[in-house]
Design a protein around this nucleic acid. Structure first.
Lengths: 184, 184
DNA sequence: CATAATTTTCAGAAATCTCTGAAAATTTAA
DNA sequence: TTAAATTTTCAGAGATTTCTGAAAATTATG
């Protein structure tokens, strides 16, 4: 399968960026290819299109499945496994956030929790413990907020994000109604 | 400088996680060390404490400065350069978000913008263009929202994040007052 | 069940990233 | 200005990650 210039640029860019997003070059390329391709693709087609080995494609597809970003699709009368992206772009973004949280935040959060259970033995350790507590509280707040945002419907989430500077006014309004003093 | 067991665990963990957060092992370790250490440290102290070469520390400090996560501090009567973390944990988190956006989103956003200027030549390209537009719109919305959140005072941001499920009610309230139909 | 089609695995090769340490460059002090 | 102190640079060594391709495992077909 020959890739048109425009598609090639897009796919290669996702390859370059892949490592910054938590996966390797070929995984990025495979994902990009599946995103812009209108029909499901099998491993041989992917390998041929991207000029990479069959084994590499197999590993890449496995990785993308572990990220829940692609899914298997069977094609009638064909024994090969075909793949398409899982859900809308919006769904995929949500999934990436979730998976990255699992990989980038959760392990640190449990380490910090364990650390806070122990007592400081001297002044320096006391200082360290305080900083660790700050990090812990921040990460906890972030993950909880992320969980809440995830429960919102896409429409609600979108309208929240589109509020822009309106969010500030909304918070003031809430404080006024709730009878609390302003928070800024 | 001898590192107590608890500090060692914390520093090494940041080293391991470093690559997932966008920098390498030693950069992660240096940052962690500066975060939990109550006083400014010079490059030799860092090299000795972490058992890494002087050159590596120099590169790591440069990298952390480019991330705006640490800053130089002069010590009276000492020619060496001393370093401390830049701002509170909260400030640093904000900075990491900003810098990661620059590295992970901005380049893609400009590529996609350029791509959308060109016309689709056939049905497949039309499909690709649509998906690219979806990604573009999502990334643009995300960055704009991030910019807005960044303008909020830490207190307001914190109260927003602590709203939890209250955010949903607040959005409904706003819609009611603005006289629009509910968005969920 | 046998065999053909397909996918997965994984050892070693290739590519990339990280680190060292000595030399070069820069800064400060006398 | 000179020399000592300090930082930076960067070539090559070392470590890690990624990729290939052939062999093993799995799955489907007759």
């Amino acid at each position: 399968m020959e890739l048109p210039e425009k598609a090639r640029v897009f796919v290669f860019h996702f390859g370059e960026m892949g490592s910054r997003w938590g996966f390797n070059r070929t995984v990025g390329q495979i994902l990009a290819l599946l995103v812009i391709h209108p029909k499901a693709l099998n491993a041989d087609q992917i390998a041929q299109t991207l000029s990479i080995s069959r084994g590499n494609v197999s590993m890449g597809l496995k990785e993308l499945q572990s990220w829940r970003l692609i899914q298997l699709q069977h094609v009638a009368g064909d024994r090969k496994d075909y793949f398409i992206t899982a859900g809308s772009i919006w769904d995929m973004a949500k999934t990436v956030f979730e998976e990255r949280r699992k990989r980038e935040i959760d392990p640190t959060l449990s380490l910090l929790r364990a650390n806070l259970l122990e007592d400081a033995q001297n002044e320096d350790e006391e200082y360290a413990q305080q900083r660790i507590e700050e990090i812990h509280d921040l990460l906890e707040l972030l993950t909880q907020w992320g969980d809440h945002l995830n429960t919102l419907s896409p429409e609600k989430l979108e309208s929240l994000m589109k509020l822009g500077s309106g969010i500030s006014k909304l918070l003031d309004m809430k404080d006024k109604i709730m009878g609390k003093k302003s928070t800024d």
